[in-house]
Design a protein around this nucleic acid. Structure first.
Length: 680
DNA sequence: GAGCACTGC
């Protein structure tokens, strides 16, 4: 069935009433995200104080959509319509339409396993198949099944008899999982599930939900002409350069969006374009280039949204960030080289890598769509059409290519003990699950029987962090350095704190020197944090206005080549985690200048991430045996200590250790005997 | 002596 959203209100409400699960396929611009929740509200789905929840993979989307719907409803944001994302809860008791990130709903499930406030949950952008979306889908399936068991409206078939016994599996596949058992005769209304996807794979979702009904909603996209090359290109950067110039000289007005794989490519193409433009006739030099990628400080990101000077064409060089996360106005031409830098994970070696690979068909479609938002457009794919047909339909779901430790820990905390048997839409590799179980046992989060341990596992699962980071936090009190560890973990869990533009690298290094510590990068991060705190405190005395302090901090960040957005994010994480540990009753103590305590604590918690120097000067990662190098960006890459712990091991051009600190090799058997006793 | 895409709790 295909509908246009404008005249579909009644039909959609009936569809939701008559089907427990509905798949909605809507192209971009169909209005499904903003309209459907309002239809359901008007259709009575919030009667009795029930809530409609809509999940988004990204924070910005949750916020902007909520704002728009509040406006359309003519209500104040946070009242009838609100949103909830990490660090920001703009909802109230009267909120009935609630937008949120899917990760946040997963956290909510830890507190309320039946998600009992929600009458409808809409999972938006499900086609993106993020880890959070995938786990959520499996969970919602269970919750829906369990809630229909304890239904308040049809209580004759399955009477809840008032005790807490698990539901038996005698009804075969329709049984509810034992972790969802209602206590004291608790009763629920049924849960309606709506899965919204932008692409062609409705069948996959439909099959996963037992043949659920699918409805199509028409989009409002302008046509985009797709052009291919005749032959494969050898050098896509050069091909992109030529295409930019060609469009500029031969096509009508309109801005150009070029998809590249990373900062380096963007910087080099930007140089080349500027160079070539200077050699054009003066009348054709009306081009400005701007670039955008995630690690670029936000003031510079903002430049892509500025309209070009009159009569000028804007060329935007972007990474994947422009595919879904940001929408730039004025784009008429898209250049798509057909490649993307993607993270991959091998469960066998536990090695993460970051490699340039071909895009999927869905991704190519998404990219070309960026040319048709305001009018008809053109997309230049820098490969032959035959290559397009050979591309994979869609990108491999993230859950099949990432480390699962934190997901497994979260599922365990939800009471889901059989991870391998959990009903994932795409099952992660068995090896991958096994590996994460082993890691969680080594960290003491799980018992030898694979049960969540008490209190370590329970405490770890409450922290929204990587399990190793959680472990470090929980151990830190014993080493008298919880304050230092809170800062370290906060700084490690945000995107790169250090901003290094290619052309000012030397200048940046000089600036970073004043923070650097020869013992390692973890302490360097602490130094950056303290320096920023000190700067803020000084400014508070001079001029107490918040705006002035923010402005000065931005300047301080610029001067020190620190990413302001990342630093603020780290401050947010810091205060959130601090709140959690205080709730747990841990003492926030500090080791002062005695960093030996701190490094011993790092060894005791990061022991899985230890590496030993080899005679040839390279390192051997102790867990995997992998030969690695310390990343050149590390402050101690020159000193080469005998033994280090690292934050992550990622293969780019070679396998590198990032964020490294020197430890004494004897600490490992002393502080992690369960893991190192036999090996040393 | 080389350089990490994107997102989330």
């Amino acid at each position: 069935m295909t509908l246009a959203i404008g005249d579909a209100e009644k039909r959609l409400v009936v569809e939701v009433r008559t089907h427990d699960t509905l798949i909605i396929v809507g192209e971009t611009g169909s209005g499904k995200t903003t309209q459907l929740p309002q239809f359901l509200f008007n259709g009575g789905f919030c009667d009795g104080g029930k809530v409609i929840g809509i999940t988004q993979p990204r924070r910005v989307a949750a916020v902007t959509v909520a704002k728009r719907v509040a406006e359309e409803c003519g209500v104040e944001l946070g009242q009838k319509v609100g949103y909830s994302i990490r660090f920001e809860d703009v909802t109230s008791r009267s909120t009935r339409i609630k937008y949120m990130t899917d990760g946040l709903l997963l956290r909510e499930a830890l507190l309320d396993p039946f998600l009992s406030r929600y009458s409808v949950i809409i999972v938006d952008e499900a086609h993106e198949r993020t880890v959070h979306t995938d786990v959520l889908l499996g969970l919602l399936k269970d919750v829906q099944r369990a809630r229909s068991k304890y239904n308040t409206t049809q209580n004759n078939s399955d009477k809840v008899n008032g005790n807490c016994s698990a539901i038996s599996g005698k009804e075969g596949i329709t049984h509810s999982p034992s972790y969802l058992k209602a206590c004291q005769g608790a009763k629920f209304f049924p849960l309606k599930l709506i899965i919204m996807s932008a692409s062609l794979d409705a069948r996959g979702f439909s099959a996963y939900f037992g043949g659920a009904r699918a409805v199509h909603i028409q989009g409002r996209q302008y046509p985009v002409d797709i052009l291919y090359t005749y032959d494969p290109v050898r050098d896509y950067l050069n091909a992109a350069l030529i295409t930019i110039l060609q469009i500029h000289l031969e096509e009508g007005p309109g801005d150009i969006l070029v998809f590249l794989t990373g900062q380096e490519e963007i910087e080099s193409v930007e140089r080349l374009v500027r160079e070539r433009i200077r050699h054009l006739p003066l009348s054709s030099q009306n081009v400005v280039t701007v670039s955008i990628y995630s690690s670029l400080p936000s003031e510079q990101q903002m430049k892509v949204f500025r309209p070009p000077p009159p009569g000028c064409r804007k060329v935007i060089l972007a990474t994947n960030i422009a595919e879904t996360s940001v929408t730039i106005p004025g784009i008429k031409y898209v250049i798509d080289p057909g490649v993307v830098k993607a993270r991959d994970y091998s469960a066998k070696t536990g090695l993460e890598s970051l490699v340039i690979v071909p895009t999927s068909k869905a991704q190519a479609l998404q990219r070309s769509g960026r040319a048709g938002r305001e009018g008809p457009g053109k997309c230049f794919r820098l490969y032959p059409e035959s290559v397009f047909f050979e591309l994979k339909d869609s990108t491999l779901p993230e859950i099949k290519r990432c480390n699962l430790s934190s997901i497994v820990l979260q599922l365990k905390a939800l009471g889901i003990d059989d991870i391998i048997g959990f009903d994932f839409m795409d099952k992660p590799d068995r090896d991958s699950i096994k590996k994460s179980l082993e890691q969680l046992i080594a960290l003491g989060a799980l018992t030898d029987e694979y049960k969540l341990s008490d209190p370590v596992g329970q405490q770890m699962s409450r922290l929204p962090l990587d399990p190793i980071h959680s472990k470090a936090i929980i151990l830190a009190t014993q080493y008298n350095c919880l304050e230092e560890m809170l800062i370290t973990v906060s700084m490690l869990s945000v995107e790169s704190i250090f901003y290094s533009p290619h052309d000012k690298l030397e200048e940046a290094k000089v600036a970073w020197k004043r923070f650097s510590c020869l013992e390692g990068d973890h302490i360097t991060l602490i130094n950056v944090y303290w320096a920023s705190v000190e700067f803020i405190e000084k400014n508070k005395i001079k001029d107490g206005r918040v705006k002035a302090i923010e402005g000065n901090l931005k300047k301080w960040c610029r001067e020190n080549f620190i990413n302001n957005r990342s630093l603020r994010h780290a401050q947010d994480v810091h205060s959130q985690i601090r709140g959690h540990v205080q709730q747990m009753g841990l003492t926030v103590n500090s080791c002062g200048d005695d960093m030996l305590q701190f490094r011993r604590c790092l060894a005791a918690s990061f022991f899985l991430n230890a590496a030993l120097k080899q005679p040839d000067g390279s390192y051997r990662a102790m867990e995997s045996g992998q030969r690695v190098q310390i990343h050149p960006s590390s402050m101690i890459s020159g000193t080469k200590p005998d033994c280090v712990i690292y934050n992550e091991l990622v293969q780019t051009s070679r396998p590198y250790l990032r964020y490294v600190t020197r430890i004494d090799p004897l600490w490992l058997p002393e502080l992690a005997p369960q893991y190192y006793a036999a090996q040393t």
